[in-house]
């Protein structure tokens, strides 16, 4: 029998599944309901009810057995929304149980590589967003930005922008996931957020966008033109919401 564990899509749900499946030798997959499309005859489905206490026990245990960094890594892997993330995390936890802190040295072990690779991909997108989120000033001094990241990033970038624009109002809208982080100047919430792409065409806003775009042109050393390098640094898929690449087509 192949056992498939279905959780509610939350991180705590995923960790509860790991907890409940810990001794299961026939575990085959840990999935969300949406990810569980076709079930064949050999598969047995187990529905997991999220238990925060169990999840917190695992998180604490990871911190004690390994370190805070590993806690962060596993959480980032969850945020990648990779279809195999459930089993990747499960197998890493088993390995951590077996090897203790040493697990981090097993750099050529496939389970360790999967976790390292996905968390690294997630972290580099986070870092890129720190620089590539573009706000427009709309309405009454509200900063509004659209993003379409590969991975779920709102949880990790919201605290950064809350610190940076402390006391200011901002909304970061993830168009892919129909979610937004909304900051009231001191606290942020992450919530579902549909449609309503707030647009602002105030003259002041447009003139600042124009200045930014022209400034970047002025800053280019024509004798060193290297569009390949630029493309490597700013991949085409990331340009959609960058003022400097979209301004001319928009206006």
């Amino acid at each position: 029998m192949l056992n498939i564990y279905i959780y509610d899509g939350s991180y705590h749900g995923l960790l509860t599944s790991c907890f409940d499946a810990w001794k299961d030798k026939d575990i085959y997959s840990i999935r969300t309901k949406e990810e569980n499309k076709d079930v064949n005859l050999l598969e047995k489905v187990v529905y997991i009810e999220t238990d925060n206490e169990k999840a917190e026990r695992i998180i604490k245990w990871v911190g004690k057995e390994a370190c805070y960094e590993v806690q962060r890594k596993l959480y980032r892997v969850f945020l990648t929304e990779h279809p195999e993330r459930g089993m990747y995390i499960f197998r890493y936890l088993k390995l951590l149980n077996q090897l203790g802190r040493n697990v981090e040295n097993h750099l050529y072990n496939d389970d360790v590589r999967n976790i390292n690779k996905l968390s690294r991909m997630h972290a580099s997108e986070t870092h890129r967003l720190y620089g590539f989120v573009r706000f427009e000033v709309i309405g009454n001094n509200i900063l509004y930005a659209r993003i379409e990241p590969d991975f779920n990033q709102l949880e990790v970038i919201a605290p950064y922008f809350a610190d940076r624009y402390n006391g200011h109002l901002w909304i970061i809208h993830d168009l892919t996931r129909n979610m937004a982080a909304i900051f009231n100047g001191s606290q942020y919430i992450i919530t579902e957020y549909n449609g309503n792409m707030l647009d602002n065409e105030s003259k002041t806003e447009i003139s600042f966008q124009k200045m930014w775009v022209e400034y970047l042109d002025a800053l280019t050393i024509k004798e060193r033109l290297n569009l390949d390098l630029q493309k490597q640094k700013v991949p085409l898929k990331t340009r959609k919401h960058l003022t400097e690449f979209m301004f001319k087509s928009k206006n």
Partner: peptide, 24 residues
Amino acid sequence: GSSKQGAMGNSVACGICHSFTQDG
């Protein structure tokens, strides 16, 4: 960042690139 009224900004030790000009 500062919690001072009206303050804005922070700094990250590793630095952050915000854009790349056509010379890369």
